[in-house]
């Protein structure tokens, strides 16, 4: 079977500047070297196949978010390559591309527009998203007034409703209440049945064991375990 995500010798090193001034010095003089490197992801290689749900665990700073950001395409790798065969929808770092000043409804539209949907297509999905998020009248208020749970609900509802082949969920569920988490995991099941792929970061080992078919454990940018859950 063709892998849906194929990661090859992937590394990401961030430039770390000691002083703010060094940023300008490097920008103005291409040859100046005033930074040190922080390796967030260190030479990772793995494949993910359609229908797999991969749980990723690791301590803070292990490289989970950086890895998911690179797979999403938001951050570019320093070395190595990633091949993706499908549409990715992701919830990175507890959120999605919401404008805090816009209302929930307006953000549903903007989110859809960014994903290339027409307003008619968004209108067709609007009610489904509102029902899934289930945050009542708050949907007409600016997103900045939301509790973190409400934000996560709306973000998750938007992310699953653009019909992705790959769903990337980075910790976002941990702020939702039990009922919402159960609803999301039920959605995961439907996803798996339709041979869609899920990458799921959580600090709750139980959630990963019950909902994922495969586990990866990350430590200091390296994958130290990769196997069945």
């Amino acid at each position: 079977m063709e892998p849906i995500i194929s990661v090859n010798n992937l590394s990401k090193r961030y430039k770390v500047f000691g002083r703010k001034k060094d940023v300008i010095v490097e920008a103005l003089f291409p040859k100046a070297n005033r930074h040190t490197l922080f390796t967030a992801v260190d030479n990772m290689t793995f494949d993910v196949f359609p229908g797999e749900s991969v749980g990723i665990i690791g301590c803070n700073g292990a490289g989970k978010s950086t890895l998911l950001k690179m797979i999403t395409g938001v951050v570019s790798p320093t070395e190595g390559s990633i091949k993706i065969n499908g549409r990715v929808s992701s919830l990175l770092e507890l959120g999605t591309a919401f404008n805090p000043e816009l209302t929930g409804i307006e953000n549903i539209y903007q989110h859809g527009q960014i994903f290339g949907l027409t307003n008619d297509e968004i209108k067709a999905r609007e009610q489904e998203i509102i029902d899934f998020a289930d945050i009542g009248d708050h949907i007409n208020q600016p997103v900045k007034t939301y509790s973190s749970g409400m934000f996560a609900r709306l973000a998750f509802a938007c992310a699953i409703n653009v019909d992705p082949d790959i769903l990337i969920v980075d910790e976002v569920l941990s702020v939702g209440d039990m009922a919402f988490q159960m609803k999301c995991f039920k959605k995961f099941e439907q996803f798996k049945e339709r041979k869609k792929t899920i990458l799921f970061v959580s600090h709750n080992v139980n959630d990963i064991l019950t909902n994922c078919s495969r586990v990866m454990i990350l430590q200091q940018g390296k994958c130290i375990f990769d196997g069945d859950a």
């Binding site: 999403t72 395409g73 938001v74 990715v88 992701s90 990175l92 770092e93 959120g95 999605t96 591309a97 919401f98 404008n99 960014i114």
Partner: peptide
Amino acid sequence: SYLVKKTVF
């Protein structure tokens, strides 16, 4: 920045 950091835009 949220369009750059949180989604592929």
